[in-house]
Design a protein around this nucleic acid. Structure first.
Lengths: 211, 211
DNA sequence: ATTTGTAGCTATCGAATGATTACAAGTGTG
DNA sequence: CACACTTGTAATCATTCGATAGCTACAAAT
């Protein structure tokens, strides 16, 4: 009376197994994308699990709580941002540093959800835990620009302001309107003089995934 | 066997009744504050109802859905923003117009949740309904600055960028760190050269309300 | 071959939330 | 006063979601 359950067909022959450490990174990366798109409350652990190709309970068990997962996503995003800026600064400070860091910032858009999950954290100041982490993260970037990059307060302000505008336009998916609205076109071109094609490509990629 | 319920003490002797039109405005204003603090998904209709001093089912019945309520909040916020800018433009275009509109923008922080609910809408581009409304609203402001205020694309970009930075700092409640963190102090001062005291006062008011 | 730990899933629970229904209390009008 | 309409609430319903429990399967070491 062997089982009728078709389990002995050697399922998932493609993927043998994975070390939990690797799976962890995979889930965090997927979570960055989902949190970036739908926000902390809007994103569900089930969406994240599906995006990572695992079951929802597995996400819960690996990270304990959704909040903890978000904090790890935030840390990953911040770490990547700081690393990118630091690398650019290491290439030498000079009059063109702001432009170079700006380009490095825009290139981070390639990492799905990185800047957007950051932005989502930045408007959660009312949350006691995430708000605190978000403030600390923002200030970490501010200090990096002031101290290591050598920007003065007004340069730093201008740089961060532009970053927040870029985040907002991407979060709004303004690129969706690019082809149909001439105002959106100019608006995007003004905010991203060089990296326009990158954002448009990103928008196309984004649209290729439904909720 | 008359009821033990102390209902016959003529409750709410202070407020007789209110016309639903007035109640409507009241709820929308309260919703702007709650949505601004917790975002679309994070805010509950019950929180909003309590903030407005009515029952949760009343909110549902008056607006149909939470989504519809958010759209009305968005429209109200946008309307106030556009009105404020238009009024400033009507006072005459000139070399100081950008500064005057900037001050008008910062003054909108006095209207609880106005700019924050806008910001919340701006990072909901993935939502089919709210995202579309958010994009339209953002572009409406962009066009106002370009056409009516007479800004060129780069001036408009710089202005909006600074606005997004202000929204972010307020959304992060950076003012919470003002007294304890000298970096936060400089950061806020750089972003809001004149209106610093306004933001600090706002932060104090915000902290006076718990979740 | 057996043991032992790790990776991962199915099933399910309890709390929260948005919406609906049914009813009560006020308000105006003949 | 009666009657209809409006304002508002309490009770409750149906879902959704995050978390937990408990199991299965695989792999490495013994």
């Amino acid at each position: 009376m062997s089982s009728v359950i078709p389990h002995d067909v050697k399922h998932h022959e493609t993927q043998p197994r994975m070390k939990s450490e690797d799976r962890r990174e995979l889930i965090i990366a997927a979570a960055a994308g989902v949190f970036g798109d739908y926000g902390y409350f809007g994103a569900t652990t089930d969406q994240i699990a599906k995006a990572a190709g695992v079951s929802q309970p597995y996400v819960s068990r690996m990270f304990g709580t959704k909040e903890q997962l978000f904090l790890e996503v935030l840390e990953r995003s911040l770490g990547a941002l700081v690393a990118a800026f630091t690398a650019e600064i290491a290439r030498g400070t000079g009059p063109d540093l702001m432009q170079r860091i700006g380009r490095a910032y825009a290139d981070l858009l390639n990492d799905r959800g990185l800047l957007l999950s950051l932005m989502q954290a930045f408007i959660m100041g009312s949350d006691p835990v995430i708000g605190k982490a978000g403030r600390a993260g923002f200030l970490r970037v501010y200090e990096l620009l002031r101290n290591d990059a050598g920007f003065d307060p007004d340069e730093t302000r201008a740089f961060l302001a532009n970053g927040m505008l870029i985040n907002t336009l991407v979060g709004l998916r303004m690129s969706d309107e690019y082809e149909t609205n001439i105002v959106a076109e100019e608006c995007l071109a003004a905010a991203l003089p060089e990296k326009l094609d990158l954002v448009l490509e990103l928008g196309r990629r984004q649209r290729a995934e439904a909720r």
